[in-house]
């Protein structure tokens, strides 16, 4: 009997500088406990983080890259959402 494939997990680490958990990579583990331990060994050998999340890769829903135009174009055309769109006279100073 072939060994069933070991589930895949995505690993997220929060570094000590207070930023959000960030995706760092993936690994295989039979369950969540083992995934956490493996993530500690693989992704934090040099004190890269203070907190780890592991998420089953199968639980992630991703946007379709072929639809990225439709997804993201609406934001690109709205330049008035950026502060640089608005003119403030120089004498007003920093705003």
């Amino acid at each position: 009997m072939a060994t069933p494939n070991t589930p895949l997990w995505e690993v997220f680490i929060r570094s000590r500088n207070g930023l959000a958990h960030k995706h760092v990579g993936s690994l295989h583990a039979a369950d969540a406990t083992l995934a956490l331990q493996a993530a500690r060994d693989i992704y934090t050998r040099r004190g890269e983080g203070l907190s780890i999340w592991v998420v089953p890769s199968s639980a992630i829903t991703a946007s379709d890259p072929s639809e990225k135009g439709m997804m993201f174009e609406p934001a690109e055309s709205k330049i008035y959402r950026h502060p640089t769109f608005y003119d403030v006279p120089e004498e007003v100073g920093h705003m």
């Binding site: 060994t3 069933p4 070991t6 583990a29 039979a30 369950d31 083992l34």
Partner: peptide, 15 residues
């Protein structure tokens, strides 16, 4: 290492 992989898989399945 096969028994380790098998044991981990069996334990995960039981849980």
């Amino acid at each position: 290492g096969a028994w380790v992989r098998d044991a981990a898989a069996a334990y995960a399945e039981k849980r």
